[in-house]
Every structure is written in C-alpha cells, then in structure tokens.
C-alpha cells in the first residue's frame, strides 16, 4: 500500500550551490491536510519546488501513487495530478481572471469541458465571478491568492501544494483560506502546505512535518507536533505557550 505522495531521502540545491535539501522525507496520505513547518532556510519551499519538478533533485526519490515522478517536468507532473501555488502566486498579471482560469485549464483540450469546469470553479468562488474580466494584477492580495487557488482546481488535481498561502494577508482572509482548504479536503482532495506561522498552520492540519537544515526531523499528527516539547522549544517559541 503506497501513500499518495512519498518523498524519500531527497537531496537538492540551486545550480552548483550547496544542497538545501539534505535527505528530506515526506509522506502525504490521501484526503489529509499536511502542514510543513520549520525555520527560515530550512528548505520548505525548496521541497515543494523539488516535488513539482521546478528544481531537479540530486538524489533520492519522489513517488506519486508508487510511480516515480522525480525526473519529470512541471507540466508533466501537473498532468499526473499535482498542482502548485508558489509564494508569489504565479498569476498572469496582464490577463483577466477568466483568462487566468483558462490558463489553469491549459492542458484541457476540450473547449466545452473547459468552460464547464471554469463555471464550476466560479460557482465556488463568487467573488471571482464578480471580477471575471478584471486584470489579475489589479486585485488585492487576498483575491489574488483566492484566484491562484481556484485556478489549480480547474484541472482537478489529486494534491494541491500551497507555499505560504497566508503570506501578507489579513487574519480574516487567512481564515477564509483555511475554510476553503477544509472544503477541498472534505471533497476528497489532498492539501500540502508550507506555513511560516506554524501554530496556525498546524491547528488547521491533520498532519505536520518539521523540516530543518534540509532534513525531516519530526512527522506525525498535527496535535502531537503542537504539543511536542522539543518542537515547542525549537520552532514554536513562546507563541504556542
């Protein structure tokens, strides 16, 4: 029995620079929200880039449903069912909301099917329907994050990876964001996210993983991670007390 996504002993770095990931491990089960935490420079974003294929790995394995995906390109990995929203959200600023959603469905060649899916997504995010013809670059940070998440849903991926979705957003918007994630999980999707605000991230997740120095140090139910004294001392600080 394979986990949905298995990352084992991955080493990766940028260019000819030092390795940022030094043997990272990760197991993601279907239908869970898993949150990766760790200090700055721990390799959290790098791990996501390695999974999606933006950064070639130097050694180790990444498997989706048992099949190796660590030599594939990002566009191929998307087709296998992993979608990724990077920190900077990767929208097309000069395209409208609708065009951005169309780009989200770039791999869907059937035009009627694409239209239907865009409609579905717009139903789920009424705020985006209101702004369907607005340029993405002119929207607020929260709306942009919403659009970025909505866009990944067009291809109905197995896993959605979100790199710091709450970055720079007001607490109320952050709450909305997590509500959406819970909805996604409840509809059978799997969410993997990186959070700088470890406490908020873990409270909203089923499972947590602690990454430091490019290695996986702890992994387990989010509740346990939150209460683990070692994790509290090293990573959660006083805020968790």
């Amino acid at each position: 029995m394979h986990e949905l996504l298995e990352v084992s002993n991955v080493v990766a770095g940028y260019g000819s620079g030092p390795a940022i990931l030094n043997g990272a491990d990760l197991d993601v089960a279907k239908g869970e929200i898993q949150c990766i935490i760790g200090p700055n420079g721990a390799g959290k974003s790098t791990l996501m880039k390695a999974i999606i294929g933006l950064l070639p790995i130097r050694s180790g394995e990444i498997r989706l449903l048992g099949e190796r995906i660590d030599r594939l390109r990002p566009d191929q990995i998307l087709q296998k069912g992993i979608a990724f929203v990077p920190q900077e959200r990767a929208l097309f600023p000069k395209m409208s909301v609708r065009e951005n959603l169309r780009m989200g469905g770039y791999t869907i060649r059937n035009e009627t099917e694409l239209k239907r899916r865009i409609d579905d997504v717009l139903d789920r995010f009424p705020i985006l329907r209101e702004r369907a013809s607005q340029h993405a670059g002119t929207m607020s940070g929260g709306q942009q994050q919403m659009l970025a998440m909505a866009r990944t849903l067009i291809v109905r991926p197995k896993i959605v990876m979100l790199d710091e979705p709450s970055l720079g957003l007001a607490p109320m918007i952050v709450k909305q964001m997590f509500d959406i994630m819970h909805q996604l999980r409840d509809s059978g999707m799997t969410v993997l996210l990186v959070e700088q605000n470890a406490v908020v991230g873990l409270k909203n997740a089923n499972r947590g993983t602690v990454l430091d120095l490019g290695r996986t140090l702890f992994s387990g139910p989010a509740k346990d991670i939150l209460t683990d004294p070692r994790v509290r001392e090293l990573y959660l600080g006083k805020a968790a007390a």
Partner: peptide, 21 residues
C-alpha cells in the same frame, strides 16, 4: 517517523552546517 534527535543535537547540527558554508 520522528527521529530520536534531541534539542541539543539539532542546535549542534545547525552550527556545523553554518561553519561548513
């Protein structure tokens, strides 16, 4: 999958890593 690392081990590893750079 939690490893047996203690707090001091992590701090030491971090120091070594930084010196290596």
């Amino acid at each position: 999958m939690a490893t047996g690392l203690g707090v001091s081990d992590v701090l030491k590893a971090r120091k070594n890593y930084n010196e290596g750079l």
